[in-house]
Design a protein around this nucleic acid. Structure first.
Lengths: 348, 348
DNA sequence: CTGTTAGCGCTTTCAC
DNA sequence: GTGAAAGCGCTAACAG
């Protein structure tokens, strides 16, 4: 536990500004915060003095005396991944424009999260919390609410609190239907499971089975590889899938990173893409276009911005226009998918 | 500007804990903060009560009365890039373990930074600032110091304040010498320039010329492509380079992302790697292994952790063990580099 | 509309 | 060792 070295204090206090402007403390306070009940002329005078001495209120004092912290907590599991980084960047942007400070909490695993929610009688630290792509469970949620802390989810799934996300099922269907339309029938799935929450099948998984069902293709468990998230895991999954007796002609990966791994395996195996095997991912990671990977794009930055705006409404006391926002996804066809070889298509 | 809805307050105050433990306010305060001058028995009693009621001090009140904010500002230009995200994740981790809160500032452009440093009579917001991979200019620096705010740089270049980085020149030499050792003589460079600070040549650029000089190869300006950062730009640069009359047999890209772009161009051009052209990057982005890209690895997480530790020392008032830390880099040979074709090698 | 007066919850002298 | 008292800089109620 660091004990900071004492910094010198030299800044002006509200009292100084008030005096300089020739008004009382209360008036100065109101003027600075654009509270009603101050003569316009007076307000201008105060504002001018404050500006001149580049005065800023002490957030600590303001918080101690008042109610809000003007700070929001941003909980994110994996900052090093593109999706999360982009989301955070977007959220931070709109929050900062609204003069709010962002307290970052990189909560990699369940343990971190637990600690956060436990240590967070932190209504003492933030007015609100934005969680990126993971659910807040009932108990924690109740406590947050009882503390008066707002919660919104960005990029997660449906929730009881306000959220913004994409329809993962629809995204999955976009990918699968593309493959099926191309003529593929034997389609493998590389499915990543979150170690912390191996919960019920995700939308992207359900889309797989649904698409097959609609196409009249029986589900073959041998064709799905369940692995942890990550390119290397994706690569291994691909090895397993391609080692199958009756190997798939196409692969549906739950995310682009997984797909990149699959592509490497294919390349190393000497398979040509998409002639020998098609690969489709989800996300439209910036690298996807560099790898010529067909994928399903989801608007990440937009989701983040929307979630932050939602938070802003909540903080203002007004219900947000929408309690839930679902952005749509879009198929982006590139060079990694194509029709199966005739031989393969005929086989069944 | 959001006006938060008033949350209810219900938490215990230090006074309550003191009373519950049957001690005075001052004693309770000292006990909780492990200050000397409290009987061990007393301290235990206070600690026990605090634990029992899961009491936490109000950071605002503590700050207002005391000196530190227990918060550090983290300035990052591009959260969505792997390097930055990873760095931030690492920094956040050690700071959090030290009970410090991290205030995130995504400062994409010069304008954002300027605003930060202007608005930051924020000694009122943070005790210290960590900047990721960009320099703090003299004027801002002076102000920070005069406010008693510590500054450390993570992943940047040499600075007058404490920093941690890698030797970009050495990294560049590793990449270049690898190419030269393989027999390449006509080597192109894809160099990214930061729009905000098109400052003097970076270490990675200087390494290019130095390596050529040592190898006795004359510098040919036609072989270097200066572009903004980004895979797509890397791809275009590669197009230009490969369109050259006397095209290079190898490409040295300033970063892996650039190299990925180059690889795509090569692939689209029908060039085989590394037979027709070798490509080497810098960073060892996780995707590099998936693309079988030869690169120079730099330890990102370690740099972040080291910078954060440095900050901790500073905050404790003690000089850090080292005011500057330079991590070493390492060549990682993969499948994207190989000797030039004999024909090519002979040509000169 | 404006000035004054209480605290907000803690840290820090300063006596005991 | 420990308790009492004096603020830290501000907001919010309350009188004018």
């Amino acid at each position: 536990v660091p004990r900071p070295s004492a910094p010198q204090r030299a800044n002006l206090r509200l009292a100084d500004i008030a005096q300089l402007a020739g008004v009382g403390l209360g008036t100065a306070s109101r003027a600075l915060r654009n509270e009603p009940g101050v003569a316009e002329a007076t307000r201008q005078r105060v504002l001018a003095v404050a500006e001149q001495y580049s005065y800023v209120v002490s957030p600590e004092a303001a918080r101690l005396a008042g109610r809000s912290t003007a700070r929001v907590g941003l909980l994110v599991p994996h900052l090093s991944r593109w999706f999360f980084g982009t989301m955070v960047e977007a959220i931070d942007g709109v929050l900062r424009d609204a003069q709010l400070d962002v307290l970052l909490y990189a909560v990699g695993d369940l343990e971190d999260r637990r600690r956060f929610f436990k240590d967070l009688p932190a209504r003492r630290k933030v007015d609100a919390v934005i969680v990126v792509a993971f659910p807040v469970e009932g108990d924690d949620l109740v406590r947050l609410h009882s503390l008066g802390v707002h919660v919104v989810a960005a990029g997660g799934q449906h929730a009881t609190y306000p959220y913004v996300c994409v329809d993962d099922f629809a995204a999955g269907r976009l990918a699968m239907d593309h493959l099926i339309t191309l003529g593929h029938r034997r389609i493998g799935m590389i499915e990543s499971v979150d170690v912390d929450q191996p919960r019920q099948p995700t939308g992207r998984s359900r889309a797989y089975r649904a698409a097959l069902r609609v196409a009249g293709v029986p589900f073959d468990p041998a064709l799905v590889a369940r692995i942890p998230w990550g390119g290397e895991h994706g690569a291994h999954a691909m090895e397993r899938l391609m080692a199958l007796e009756d190997r798939p002609t196409a692969i549906y990966a739950h995310s682009d990173e997984l797909a990149f791994g699959a592509l490497r395996t294919a390349r190393r195996l000497g398979l040509s893409i998409p002639e020998d095997v098609s690969v489709v991912g989800v996300d439209d990671h910036p690298m996807a276009s560099l790898a010529d990977l067909t994928t399903v794009r989801q608007p990440v930055r937009e989701q983040g911005a929307a979630a932050a705006s939602m938070m802003l409404s909540l903080l203002q006391g007004s219900e947000p226009p929408d309690r839930a926002l679902t952005f749509s996804t879009e198929l982006v066809v590139r060079a990694s998918t194509g029709p199966p070889r005739l031989r393969d298509a005929r086989r069944r």
